[in-house]
Simulated assay, not measured.
Amino acid sequence: MIVVLIGYMASGKSTLGRILAKKLNYDFLDLDDYIEEKEQLLVSDIFKSKGEIYFRKVETLYLKMLLENNTKLVLSLGGGTPCYSDNMNFIRNTVKAKSIYLKASIPTLVSRLKTEKSKRPLIAHLETDELLTEFIGKHLFERSQFYNLSEVTITTDNKTEEAIIEELVLKLF
């Protein structure tokens, strides 16, 4: 089985994905890290030098390749991955894949993201919590229609990592 973790940035996809993979004795991959390795460029540099259209094309290419050629994998997607190139339908139609939406509320996301804005080009320019809240709310509204197509939704607010992992394992098997 391939566990595909979907959700907004800072929803816990990479952190929880690593823990889950270790618990299941699966491999773990973060799609953005994989793209950076294959393209020999940071995602932010791909956007700057080659543009978003190029990035979305290679993102879809690598996503499909990983879903077709792996088993026993926990795959953490970028926040936008399910929203482009019919990626969500491809994930849903991959028999060995199980999609999990890690859902976090806007206040939780703001709390997690306000300390790491400098590492996230999409939000680095947002100077106040109010602007960050507004941006996340708008973005989440646009993306939630794709996220909600996941087979399983797990809310991550006010839960320990251990509790979330336990819930994930129960929903998977």
Rank of each mutant, 00 (worst) to 15 (best):
M88Q: 06
L168P: 05
Y8Q: 02
E68N: 15
A10H: 04
S105K: 03
L31A: 03
L29G: 00
F173Q: 05
L122T: 02
Y101H: 05
S76M: 10
L132Q: 07
I53Q: 12
L20D: 03
G137V: 10
V3F: 13
C83T: 14
K57I: 12
L67N: 05
S14T: 15
M88D: 07
A163C: 12
V58Q: 13
V95R: 14
L16K: 00
N87V: 08
E52M: 10
I100D: 00
L29T: 01
G7P: 04
N89S: 14
T156V: 09
L31W: 01
K98Y: 02
I106V: 15
I165Q: 06
E39L: 11
G78Q: 00
L170F: 06
V3H: 09
K22S: 15
T115K: 13
K114W: 01
N69L: 10
N25S: 15
I53D: 14
N25D: 15
D32E: 03
D33T: 02
R120M: 02
I100C: 01
R112P: 11
L24G: 09
T81S: 14
S85I: 01
D33Q: 12
T115V: 03
E59V: 12
K138F: 11
L5Y: 00
F141E: 15
P121R: 11
G137H: 10
A97I: 05
K38M: 14
E161V: 00
L5I: 03
S14W: 10
S49A: 12
D86C: 14
I100N: 03
L61W: 10
P82E: 03
V43T: 00
V74G: 00
R56K: 15
K64W: 14
D27E: 13
S14I: 07
S85M: 15
S118K: 13
K50S: 09
R112I: 07
V58M: 14
E127R: 09
I164S: 06
L126D: 11
L168I: 13
L41T: 08
S111N: 06
K103L: 08
N25R: 15
L63V: 06
A163M: 06
D33H: 12
N93D: 12
I123C: 04
L24I: 08
A10V: 06
Y8H: 06
S49E: 15
L66C: 11
E151K: 08
I106W: 03
L149V: 03
L126M: 11
T115E: 12
F173N: 08
L75N: 03
Y8D: 01
G12E: 01
E36H: 10
I165R: 10
L75F: 04
E130L: 05
I164N: 07
E142R: 14
H125S: 15
T94K: 14
V58L: 13
F141A: 13
G137N: 15
G137W: 10
S105Q: 02
L75D: 04
Y8W: 13
S85T: 13
Y84L: 11
K119S: 02
P107S: 09
F135D: 08
N70S: 14
E142F: 10
S11Y: 02
T156P: 00
I35D: 00
L172P: 01
L16D: 06
G79V: 02
K117F: 05
T128V: 06
A104I: 04
V169S: 01
G78V: 09
L109C: 04
Y54V: 10
Y34K: 01
H125R: 13
I106E: 05
E134R: 14
T108R: 05
A97Y: 07
P121E: 03
K171S: 07
